[in-house]
């Protein structure tokens, strides 16, 4: 863990003004102060993936675990994209996403494209995070611009994003938890902008990524009755439109994503809760009665434990 601590992040956190949580209240009806340059870079980041083809080697680190290394490729071909992630360590799995239309923009990315929101008088992500642009470091041999993203409430983590100064591509991302603790870090070690796919890795398994999207019906595990989530942290929106009785719901604020899974139990359970964390991922499982029925609610995602707990607590049947 100590090896992952960063001095620069610490400085950043302690340099934040004391009125950290208040702006949203103080500026109710108005946007809290907005760093337009940061907004511009975020916007550019989400669009960059449609503009450039690249291949690179990415390292992925989580506290207390071995570093993972993977090849990541993305090729833009006409109006679709092809993505591939190949694990060079560990399981040796390969993830593919082919023929993804460029105009298919999912809810999380829409939230990051804030330029229009701000013109329309909506605050978008700047209600949820405080942004700051600074001089970035060198990542994978590229000059980067650094985007410091600090949460305005206790319900989400902070991030340090390093974007390629030329292309806007996300080259490095650090997820930061309480106490300036680095929970997780991924970064390119090497990157090349061209459309020739590297070959040669020995693959054990290929998984074709699914495409859950709003308005698309999918077959999913379902419950006998419909349910709802009574409380969500501010700014979170559904990533797709599952049936009212689907056993899963997923929400995003543009940067963080979490999913709720419900299991109905056929007998009563001793009420309780359990938490396991790995990097920035929290798995929170809670046994409780919803109405009169015993259920197991699990919240999995890149959010603090307390957020998961409060979301799980608000699950109710739809009457």
């Amino acid at each position: 863990m100590a090896g992952l601590r960063s001095k620069s992040w610490k400085n950043f956190v302690f340099a934040l003004p004391a009125a950290f949580l208040l702006p949203a209240l103080v500026f109710a009806g108005d946007c809290p102060e907005v760093d337009l340059e940061a907004i511009k870079w975020l916007d550019r980041m989400t669009r960059s993936v449609d503009e450039v083809s690249y291949h690179g080697v990415v390292t992925f680190q989580r506290d207390g675990q071995d570093m993972q290394v993977m090849q990541v490729s993305r090729v833009v071909d006409g109006d679709t994209s092809f993505e591939r992630l190949t694990q060079l360590t560990g399981q040796g799995a390969e993830i593919l996403r082919a023929s993804h239309p460029l105009q298919c923009v999912h809810p999380g990315h829409k939230l990051l494209r804030m330029g229009q929101d701000l013109q329309d008088g909506e605050c978008g992500l700047s209600r949820l995070y405080r942004f700051r642009v600074t001089e970035g470091e060198r990542v994978a041999g590229r000059k980067a611009v650094r985007l410091e993203v600090a949460p305005r409430d206790l319900y989400r983590y902070g991030y340090i994003l390093e974007l390629d100064r030329r292309t806007g591509l996300l080259l490095k991302s650090v997820t930061v938890g309480r106490g300036s603790r680095m929970l997780e870090k991924f970064q390119f070690a090497d990157i090349a902008y061209n459309s020739r796919l590297p070959e040669g890795a020995e693959i054990n398994l290929v998984h074709e990524a699914e495409h859950p999207a709003p308005g698309e019906a999918r077959e999913e595990r379902s419950l006998p009755q419909a349910w709802q989530v009574g409380w969500l942290p501010r700014g979170f929106t559904a990533t797709d439109t599952p049936l009212p009785n689907a056993a899963r719901r997923t929400f995003t604020d543009g940067l963080a994503v979490f999913s709720i899974f419900i299991e109905e139990l056929d007998r009563s359970i001793r009420p309780g809760e359990g938490v396991v964390r790995s990097g920035s991922t929290t798995s929170y499982t809670r046994g409780m009665n919803v109405g009169d029925e015993p259920v197991l609610v699990t919240v999995v995602g890149e959010i603090p434990v307390n957020t998961a707990r409060m979301v799980a607590d608000s699950v109710a049947w739809t009457h």
Partner: peptide
């Protein structure tokens, strides 16, 4: 549950966060 559900969660995270396919890692 983490083992059971993380991949299904990653399918969504990979489309709704800036990290591309990285959530599968």
């Amino acid at each position: 549950r983490m083992q059971l559900y993380l991949q299904e969660h990653a399918e969504h995270a990979a489309l709704n966060s800036p990290d591309g396919l990285i959530p599968f890692a």
